[in-house]
Write a protein that binds this DNA or RNA. Structure first.
Lengths: 112, 112
DNA sequence: ATTAAATATGCATATATGCGTATATGCTTG
DNA sequence: CAAGCATATACGCATATATGCATATTTAAT
């Protein structure tokens, strides 16, 4: 019997949205690049190789979800990871992913 | 300095896909309903209130991602949570979500 | 073998989401 | 005040995904 919470319908939508924010390679790339500390938009553009518009958009999505923080300093805007649970989240997913991969390498490749 | 792994580009895509599977209220509802044990498709249809076709499709998506297991018994098919990390994942997200909600209730309501 | 029940799939559609390009906003400096 | 740089936004388009409806598939029973 493991029923942590009643889990109201709209609470579920919020959780889903949270996962959706993480369901994007570009955003994961940005988060991963921020793992070792705060960086400006331009730096992130250079490090990730994305276009400036895209990086900015994705950073806003992350900021809106309170996953990264935004600090303005002169012309530049610095983003940093704001939610520490993101580290654990990625660890968990990477961990269980590795287990799946070592067993059946193509399981995810053909997913919908 | 927290760089868990090199994080190859296609590994990131896999992680993103994994999160994407969880980024769906219907699938979260199904997982949550399975928290207290294995259930048949029909039971899940009744408990979640979704259509049979939808429930079946979403269960397949979950099974394809190795998050649930599939056991056939006569006419019925029983699904159960296969990846224990899902419990921790949901706990993490729900936890950090609650913190965000108690601070700013509308932050997510207007997300993109 | 036929029929019925449980589950899965095909098709069409609506909605959402990401990207490229161009442009707007904001801040700093001369 | 004008000009330039860093960042954010607007628009159009292509793609993906969820859903409803209908139907196919699989298994059990008579």
């Amino acid at each position: 019997m493991k029923k942590p919470r009643p889990l109201s319908p709209d609470a579920m939508a919020l959780v889903a949205r949270r996962f959706a924010v993480l369901a994007e390679p570009t955003r994961l790339h940005l988060l991963h690049t921020l793992f070792d500390g705060e960086k400006s938009v331009n730096t992130l553009v250079e490090l990730t190789g994305g276009t400036q518009a895209n990086v900015s958009r994705h950073l806003q999505t992350l900021a809106h979800a309170h996953m990264v923080s935004r600090r303005k300093e002169g012309l530049q805007v610095f983003y940093a990871i704001a939610d520490p649970s993101i580290f654990k989240l990625c660890e968990l997913v990477c961990g269980s992913l590795e287990k799946s991969l070592t067993k059946q390498a193509d399981s995810f490749a053909e997913a919908p």
